[in-house]
């Protein structure tokens, strides 16, 4: 391969070298979906080529079956109505504030091949129906979750914003992440306790870190950076700040209702009119 070539390097290539490159600076790299029909849609060979590209560039986060791994469930998202334009722009520009990098240097054709493959996958599964008592789920969310999670601009900020979680996660992923949140903790939400030189303990979510400094949001939602040389200790915890919502804490029916409610969260228009 080459250089650090990149496969793993999708992450690296796009994030590192691509991080400073913009599509409009390279020929054949459009920022929006090129006009006309995607010539690869439904074409068997193209779909296979798109699958190879997908596996190399996307599967690390979205899973080999595109059903979500570290990153969102694309099968559900596509079956739920994600447009080609939105797909193209998401791949091209990435998603700010997430691990999704911008594919700034890839030719348009690569993106069209990926879309053709994802379309072929996305038509396999029908969108999951919300299920459960959504109203009860909403009440549960307000009482159990909203102090840490935000939806449409309301709620806590120490946990991930869930405004679009219905698009980003499958039902099974939501169940897993509610029941056993420590199984996988996303970047920017790992639990850390900082011990200051005078013995004060600051527990929170790690936002960033290098050898010499660490940045956290503490339980009072205060964001702050610390020089490690000014700390007595940094304790990395394996458990999520989010407690396990096991059956004793959230019975199966309530879980079903809560997941039903979360599945309805598909974004919010925040425009001031």
């Amino acid at each position: 391969m080459t250089r650090a070539r990149s496969r793993l390097w999708p992450a690296l290539v796009f994030a590192i070298s691509g991080g400073l490159v913009f599509a409009q600076d390279l020929p054949g790299r459009s920022e929006t979906l090129p006009p006309g029909k995607n010539p690869h849609l439904g074409n068997k060979e193209s779909i296979r080529a798109g699958m190879a590209l997908y596996r190399i560039r996307c599967a690390d986060c979205h899973g080999l079956d595109a059903a979500g791994y570290r990153g969102p469930d694309l099968v559900t998202a596509i079956a739920g109505g994600l447009t080609d334009e939105r797909l193209f722009q998401t791949i091209r520009k990435g998603v700010p504030g997430t691990e999704m990098p911008a594919a700034t240097t890839s030719p348009d054709d690569d993106l069209l091949l990926l879309i053709a493959y994802l379309r072929s996958v996305g038509t396999v599964a029908a969108p999951e129906s919300p299920g459960g008592d959504v109203e009860n789920g909403g009440r549960l969310f307000a009482s159990q979750c909203a102090s840490c999670h935000r939806v449409a601009g309301r709620g806590g900020r120490i946990g991930p914003d869930l405004t679009r979680i219905g698009i980003a996660r499958s039902r099974s992923a939501l169940v897993r992440e509610i029941r056993t949140p420590s199984e996988w903790i996303g970047p920017s939400y790992e639990t850390v306790t900082l011990v200051t030189k005078d013995g004060q303990r600051i527990r929170g979510a790690k936002k960033n870190e290098d050898v010499f400094s660490i940045q956290v949001m503490d339980s009072r939602e205060r964001i702050q950076g610390y020089l490690k040389s000014s700390l007595q200790d940094v304790v990395y915890e394996k458990a999520s700040l989010m407690p396990d919502f096991g059956p004793g804490r959230l019975n199966d029916k309530d879980l079903n209702d809560l997941v039903g409610y979360l599945s309805t969260l598909r974004g919010s228009d925040m425009t001031v009119r």
Binding site: M1, T2, R3, A4, R5, S6, R7, W9, V13, S17, G18, P27, G28, T105, P107
Partner: peptide, 12 residues
């Protein structure tokens, strides 16, 4: 550089 250039790992 040509418009139809492809490479695996960025034009470094």
């Amino acid at each position: 550089l040509p418009e139809d250039l492809r490479n695996c790992c960025g034009p470094v």
